[in-house]
Nucleic acid binder design. Sequence first.
DNA 1: TTTTTGCTGTCATGTAACTGTCATCCAGCT
DNA 2: AGCTGGATGACAGTTACATGACAGCAAAAA
Lengths: 228, 228
Amino acid sequence: MARAPRITVVEDEEALCLLLRYNLEAEGYLVETITRGDEAEIALRETVPDLLVLDWMLPGLSGIELCRRLRARRETGILPIIMLTARGEESERVRGLATGADDYMIKPFSTPELLARIRAMLRRVNPSLLLNVLSFSDLKLDREQHRVYRKERELKLGPMEFRLLEFLMQSPGRVFSRGQLLDNVWGPDIYVDDRTVDVHVGRLRKAINIGRSIDLIRTVRGAGYSFG
Amino acid sequence: MARAPRITVVEDEEALCLLLRYNLEAEGYLVETITRGDEAEIALRETVPDLLVLDWMLPGLSGIELCRRLRARRETGILPIIMLTARGEESERVRGLATGADDYMIKPFSTPELLARIRAMLRRVNPSLLLNVLSFSDLKLDREQHRVYRKERELKLGPMEFRLLEFLMQSPGRVFSRGQLLDNVWGPDIYVDDRTVDVHVGRLRKAINIGRSIDLIRTVRGAGYSFG
DNA sequence: TTTTTGCTGTCATGTAACTGTCATCCAGCT
DNA sequence: AGCTGGATGACAGTTACATGACAGCAAAAA
């Protein structure tokens, strides 16, 4: 499997939490589990995962309300959400979707089906997440082999440079602020200077723009960086 | 929603086709119905709707195969697809999703539920476009990519010009005083001369009115500026 | 163990781009 | 015309980014 997409599970039943974590990690995802709705809202303000599995009933803040609030924010407006509902009444199903969940599962549900839905949804939102080889122009990044090529010629990247490039290549053209890059590439709990990003982008540039190649990384003054 | 979303229904049962067309049109969608899989493939090469309702079993070309082919093409790679399946065996469900459908309904299904799912899915697809790209006439501003185009030609804007244009484009036609612009674009705690706005509007004008294009920014004497 | 090598984060410096102000010119209104 | 408010070019101060240098680590090699 490709580089792990991040999935956050918000579910108060301890047993189900463990089951989901076990299965999702077996599929190769990076999993974060949260048991309370209000805690989830705070956590999601920090970092946005690639997909959210959300229980309908939660202590602190109900799943449906959390969903509504997430949809109202730009950062999480299109975050894929799969809702877990206890009862299968149709009125509730419809309400769940109408609130902005992208899909729902009725408990008890089959784990393989949930995994299939997650895969389908991730592919729809950002196909790059599930690809093993990202390429753009004459640059190719192989996640499995941890190798990068520019025009058939292999490049030598440090670990940080590789991860930075990988992340940027997942959303070509999109501009990320230094804060976003630190969160997503360095990790949410790492506190380093914003300007460190500049240095690494510089190193990455030097590494991938061998010879006279055009610069594949764009600096957006006052905003951040983007690939392509 | 600005324009009526287009929905294509591919279904061979005449009665179901009529029922769906009737209900979807009542909701305000533009509906096209096709009864054969191979015909659908040809039609979808011409125009891509906003959403596709696709029967599992079809004459000419099966729904699952059509789905697979659509996913392979760039234009229809992320076209939202709701699959209609006759039997509800889980293996088939999973197969449907794994092929790339975004959702499915098991026949016989409840019409309100289908409508709710369509609504939810369109909201997810359309706002994502609407959220990130502002456009007016031949001017296009992409927030995510931080790029601005006039007639396919990319413009070079400074950070302030970009933010100013972004703000103005959010409410086309509305007039903002210099004070309002300072508050909203510069920030509430920034104290600069009112006349600074004039200069930036001037710079923005110069940047977006390349050549002989008509001026997209309107000066309202004694009141302020507006876009469009 | 010590030595070497490679990677990372911070800092200092240089530079190019951006910003705010002002003076001057111009257009619209009475 | 005369007045008022807006447009514009010039300019200096400031900001944000690029880059080279370097020390602290950690892993690999000797």
